[in-house]
Simulated assay, not measured.
Amino acid sequence: MSLGEFELIGRYFSGHDKSDAVSLGIGDDCALLNVPQGSELAITTDTQIEGIHFFKNTDPFLLGYKSLLVNLSDLASMGAKPIAFTLSLSLPMADENFLKGFSKGLFSLADKHSLPLIGGNTTKGQLSITISAYGLVEHGRAMRRDNAKDGDDIYVTGTLGLPGFAVALGYNEIAMDKSVFNECYTKSMLIEDRCAFARELSRYSKCAIDISDGLIGDLKHILDASKVGASINLEDIPLPCEFAKYNLKEKVYDLALYGGCDYELLFTASKCFRHNIEDIAQKFCTKVTRIGSISKNSKLQIINHGIMCNQNLKPFEHF
Rank of each mutant, 00 (worst) to 15 (best):
Phe6Leu: 11
Leu8Gln: 05
Tyr12Ser: 03
His16Leu: 04
Ser19Phe: 01
Asp20Arg: 14
Ala21Met: 10
Leu24Phe: 08
Ile26Thr: 02
Thr47Ser: 14
Ile49His: 00
Ile52Asp: 02
Thr58Val: 14
Tyr65Phe: 15
Lys66His: 10
Val70Leu: 03
Asn71Trp: 04
Leu72Gly: 04
Ala76Gln: 05
Lys81Phe: 06
Ile83His: 05
Ala94Pro: 02
Gly101Lys: 04
Ser103Cys: 06
Lys104Asp: 13
Lys104Gln: 15
Lys104Arg: 13
Phe107Asp: 03
Leu109His: 05
Gln126Lys: 15
Ala133Met: 03
Gly135Thr: 13
Arg141His: 14
Arg141Gly: 01
Asn147His: 10
Ala148Cys: 08
Tyr155Glu: 02
Val156Pro: 04
Gly161His: 05
Lys187Ser: 14
Glu192His: 07
Tyr204Pro: 06
Ala208Arg: 04
Leu215Gly: 08
Leu215Cys: 07
Ala230Lys: 03
Ile232Asp: 02
Glu235Leu: 04
Lys245Ile: 04
Tyr246Cys: 12
Lys249Glu: 06
Glu250Gly: 07
Ala256Leu: 09
Leu257Cys: 14
Cys261Glu: 12
Tyr263Pro: 00
Glu278Thr: 07
Ile280Arg: 11
Lys296Ile: 06
Met308Leu: 05
Gln311Lys: 11
Leu313Gln: 06
Pro315Arg: 11
His318Asp: 06
His318Ile: 14
